[in-house]
Amino acid sequence: MTKLVGPFGDTRDDGKVQLSFTLPVDWSEAADEAARQLAGKMGFRDVQVVEGRPIASGFSFFVIYATTTQAVDVDGIVAPSAGAHAMSMEEIDALVHERVGRKIRVAGACIGTDAHTVGIDAILNMKGYKGDYGLERYHEFETHNLGSQVAVEELVRFTKERRIDALLASQAVTQKGSDITNFTALSELLEAENVRDNVVLICGGPRMTNLLAGELGYDAGFGRGTLPSQVASFIAVTLAERLRQGRPHW
């Protein structure tokens, strides 16, 4: 069965959206009209430029309300979450103790030039996030938080040196897709160094999705609102399963 849904302004299926953008032109009545026509070319109907004003010499800013006729079938959409089977800290520790038989070595870092450690700290730091303890608190995890602005090369070197089981790469702020470049660089370097299969490779950030992580060559991706126990259980279950299958490891 299909269930088509579109944007809801104040009535079902009215298709109302808001958007805003800047055009590199001085403001004039014609600039408003240009913004209206541009939104029309995007496929929007009933375009209303509710605000248009100069923001600098040669630049104008617009706020627009418009209608879309597009809709999507929500029932046909699958976005598997890596955090679906979260366990408690005690359950995870017990599972690792029983099925891995040693502490899991975890390393995490903000890679590239990113200095925003809020995300990785929420997952790794003892105190955790939203009352959910971070990985440092787990008895069966040996956790290394390498901090911010860690070069991909340094992270790979650390991974090989310490024989890291699970690697967490985080990026919060991006400039023209630099996060994708850095994430890709890490997975490719691990491949090139022939250690990719030795690690459970995880990426995280406010814009990350598990689908995107798969495309980037990662085992899982965690986005905004992720709890440490979701990441911990993914690591524990994945590693335990790999060992059960007798897959090569460090």
Binding site: F21, T22, I55, H116, V173
Partner: peptide
């Protein structure tokens, strides 16, 4: 948008 990407011109103006 500062926690999303490097803010756009319009974001800076706002």
């Amino acid at each position: 948008t500062e926690a999303i990407h490097t803010p756009f011109l319009g974001d800076r103006a706002l």
